[in-house]
Amino acid sequence: MQKYFEPAELLKFSGLSLIARTVVDGFLAGLHPSAKKGVSTDFAEHREYAPGDELKRLDWKVLGKTDRYYIKEYREESTLTCNIMLDCSASMDYASGPVSKFRYAVYLAAVFSYLLSKQHDRTGLSVFNSKTREYISPKTGSTHLRVLLDSLAKLVPEGETSVQGVLKEAAARLQGRGINILISDLYGEQEEIIKYSRYLAAGKNEVIVFQVLDQEEIELSFKDPLTFTGMEDNEIIPAMPEMIRAEYKSIFKEFTDRYKKAFYEAGISYILLSTKTPLEEALIHYLTDRARGNK
C-alpha cells in the first residue's frame, strides 16, 4: 500500500483547496507527535527555576506533583512571511504523462499555501514567466488562502522564462525575515539564476528552490526518431533519442548538478522534483529543512 498520493491521482480531485487540504492534513496526521517539536506548538522545554524568573512561568502542575520548581519555556512566537514564486512559462506546460510540470507546480504551490496559512504565516504568491504576471502580497487568513488558491487555479502557462528577472524583483520586494519558495524548471540563464538566487538568500531570507521537471526531460527515454521543437523558442532539432540519450543525460545531469552545488554553497535548499514525485516528499523536505533551523 502506497504511503502518499501519486500526483496523477490528485487529478481526480476537483479544486486546489481540497487537494491542498488532503495532502497536508493527511501528511501531518501521519507524523509522530514527539518526532518534532512542531512549528505551531510554542512549548520548547522545562528548566529549573532560577531567581529572577517570573512566577507566572512556573509549571504549577509539576510543582504540585513533585514539589519542585520548573519553568516552562516557550519558543518565541514569530510570524513568517512566505513568498511562493511560481514559474508560469510555456516550458512548464510539458507533460509526458497525465500531470504536466505546471499542474504539478500548481499543486505544490497550493499545498504550501495551505500549510503556511494553517501556521498563520503570511503567504504571498508571485506568478511569472519572462516577467511577473501576477503578484499577491503576503497575508494570513483563510480568505487570503482562498484568494491564493483561486488565483492558482486560473493560471495558464505561456511565454518565455526569465527567472533571473523575477528573482531580482523578489529580492527588492522582501522586507525583514522571509521565506521564498521558488517553483520552476529553472530553464534560462543558469548563472544569472544562481546569482540572483544568492541575492535573494542574503540576509535573513530563506530560499527553497523546487526544480520541477518531467521524467522525460531527465531520462529522454523516447525510442523513435523525433523532431524536437522548443516550447518557448520554437527551435527545431531532429534527433534520434536512442543515439543521443547517454550524452543528453550526461549534459542534463551536469546542468542539475551545477544548481545543486551552487545552491548548496549559497545555503539555498534545492530539491529536484519529477512530476511523478509525490508532493508529500516536497513537504518532508520543507519541514525537515525548517526543523533543522536553517537560518
Binding site: 516550458s91 510539458y94 530553464y187 522548443g230 532539432i237 543521443i244 546542468f255
Partner: peptide, 10 residues
C-alpha cells in the same frame, strides 16, 4: 514532431 521544454541540451 514533439514539443519539448528545452531543446538546447538535445
Amino acid at each position: 514532431d514533439l514539443k519539448f521544454p528545452e531543446v538546447k541540451f538535445i
